[in-house]
């Protein structure tokens, strides 16, 4: 499902990046990516969503060589990946409902079906009755839930999250981790970058530990 084969990523100026990273995640696996700040976790996730292209090696997602994809094909790759960013990046001038609706608008879903899916996604993250509210009226944890609902509303086969529990207190972080575990239980391949991998202990995830741009440990 996701495979890195001797992947390196060098940014201009030589800052950060990845060096010779190899691992493989099978369909339906849950993996936790941890490591110190600047270890390369975000870079690794960006390579999966083709936000960055590898400088060397091969990144394969769902059988596609991401590095070789033409620019026009990248949107279609991303439609199959639920992406939860470190910055929540909700559209503040749109309601919660409209934020979650956006991926379905992009893929051209019929309005009636799209509305049903948005409502289902909001209920899944515990915000069923909050669709009409504006993002700024929600707490940080609730905004993160909206971002997760937006990521899964298209029913992607892969869910990738970058520090989704950062800046949240322990209760909210536990709730968010439980959401990811539930998606994993539903058969979605989940890769979560986090400082606190213990949140996922009871799901027995694969553990990828990054250090200074290299994969230090795979367990």
């Amino acid at each position: 499902m996701i495979a890195f084969d001797r992947v390196s990523l060098h940014y201009p100026g030589g800052q950060g990046g990845l060096t010779d990273v190899s691992f493989r995640l099978e369909r339906g696996e849950l993996a936790v990516l941890s490591g110190h700040s600047g270890a390369g976790k975000t870079s690794l996730l960006k390579l999966i969503a083709a936000i960055e292209r590898p400088s060397a090696g091969t990144v394969t997602v769902g059988g596609e060589d991401v590095g070789a994809l033409p620019r026009q094909a990248i949107p279609y790759l991303r439609r199959n990946i639920g992406l939860v960013l470190q910055e929540i990046r909700l559209l503040l001038d749109r309601s919660v409902f409209d934020n979650v609706l956006l991926p379905l608008t992009i893929t051209g879903h019929p309005p009636a079906d799209a509305s049903r899916r948005v409502q289902a996604a909001l209920e899944r993250v515990g915000l069923g009755g909050r669709g009409g509210e504006m993002p700024l009226s929600l707490s940080g944890g609730e905004q993160q839930r909206v971002a997760i609902a937006r990521a899964v509303v298209n029913r992607p086969s892969i869910l990738v999250a970058d520090e989704p529990t950062a800046h949240l207190d322990a209760d909210y972080a536990g709730d968010i981790a439980a959401l990811f575990r539930s998606f994993h239980a539903a058969g979605v391949t989940v890769l979560v970058a986090t400082h606190d991998s213990s949140l996922f202990d009871d799901a027995a995830p694969r553990r990828l530990v990054m250090s200074h741009g290299q994969l230090a440990e795979v367990a």
Binding site: Q72, P75, R79, L91, L102, N154
Partner: peptide, 16 residues
């Protein structure tokens, strides 16, 4: 700009 960037990350094509 934000809407465009988010849309791109969610799979929006240039035409969209």
């Amino acid at each position: 700009r934000t809407e465009i960037e988010v849309s791109r990350l969610l799979g929006a094509t240039d035409n969209f």
